[in-house]
């Protein structure tokens, strides 16, 4: 008995040691990102890992009126997408999960197949298409696709979740005279809140981090999102690029909402992932 217990303790200790080592490695970039934001120019130049003095001097340089404006843009686009993607993917998912109509399986398999198409094949000609419609240099390319289905992966997740709702519930409502939309709104959606929360979270974060779409279709500074703004300031800048503490200060502020959301909605995230995992 004693040996089993001690064996288990040793196993546990090994597990913690391994996990801790990995944790240090994984934390290193993010911690260094935050530490560098609080360094002086001298610390940056000499390559210090820890600030010799903590200073917030870099923040006012990084977070100017332009940064605020881009932050605002990102938030607006993010919220619109969050609503649009959730709404449209749940509607489509409801159609695929709970309604029976001819051609359903065919349409669904086409939707899933789009997951495999390389996006670059679409993005370049899309530029000319958006152009013809006068959409370039507006937020429409960042918003409208979200309302058109909201992405195959979200439809798939929602559909899987909805399949778990017993048909009998919907049948009962139908007998009571509810139409399809009413069933979706009053019965199915309230039961889908966990997965809807996941889709909302992911679409907001996706939008927050999105870089490719604005890079290709948005050129006007006042329409940039934060990603694009930072890219043109700190990566692709023909002029002079400010030192690392300013860059990291800008990055830290951008990262903050992601980390907060993740910390507090971890459960929603893991639950959402399990829907796809378990039934996928």
């Amino acid at each position: 008995m004693q040996t089993i217990k001690s064996k288990r303790a040793v196993g546990l200790a090994i597990r913690y040691v391994v996990l801790l080592i990995f944790a240090v490695i994984f934390l290193f970039p993010v911690v260094e990102l935050i530490l560098k934001a609080f360094m002086t120019d001298e610390d940056i130049a000499s390559g210090a890992l820890f600030p010799s003095v903590f200073t917030v001097a870099a923040f006012p340089k990084a977070i100017d009126s332009g940064y605020f404006w881009w932050l605002k843009n990102t938030l607006i686009i993010g919220v619109i997408n969050m609503v649009g993607i959730t709404l449209s993917s749940s509607l489509c998912a409801y159609g695929f999960a709970k309604l029976k109509f001819k051609g359903r399986e065919l349409v669904f398999s086409i939707v899933i197949a789009t997951l495999m198409l390389p996006s670059i094949c679409m993005q370049i000609p899309l530029y000319k298409l958006y152009f013809g419609m006068g959409w370039t240099n507006t937020w429409l390319p960042l918003i409208i696709p979200g309302f058109c289905g909201g992405g195959a992966i979200n439809i798939f997740l929602m559909r899987q979740y909805m399949k778990g709702i017993p048909d009998s519930v919907c049948e009962a409502a139908k007998v009571d005279g509810a139409n399809k939309f009413l069933i979706y709104l009053v019965i199915v959606m309230p039961m889908c809140l966990p997965i809807a929360g996941y889709v909302m979270l992911m679409s907001f974060l996706g939008c927050w981090n999105d870089f490719m779409t604005p890079l290709l279709y948005i050129n006007e500074q006042s329409l940039y999102n934060l990603s694009l703004g930072l890219y043109y300031r700190y990566v692709n800048n023909a002029g002079s690029i400010p030192p690392a503490n300013v860059q990291m200060a800008a990055a830290t502020v951008m990262l903050l909402p992601c980390i907060i959301l993740f910390f507090f909605f971890q459960k929603v995230l893991i639950n959402g992932v399990s829907v796809g995992a378990v039934k996928g």
Binding site: D64, G66, W69, L261
Partner: peptide, 26 residues
């Protein structure tokens, strides 16, 4: 706690939207 943080975050974000009301690039 979670509700509190959500509300706080939403407040901070909407405050950002409201305060950044003049376009510095136009």
């Amino acid at each position: 706690m979670k509700k509190f943080v959500t509300i706080l975050l939403a407040l901070v974000m909407s405050a950002t939207v409201l305060t950044a009301c003049s376009d510095p690039f136009k």
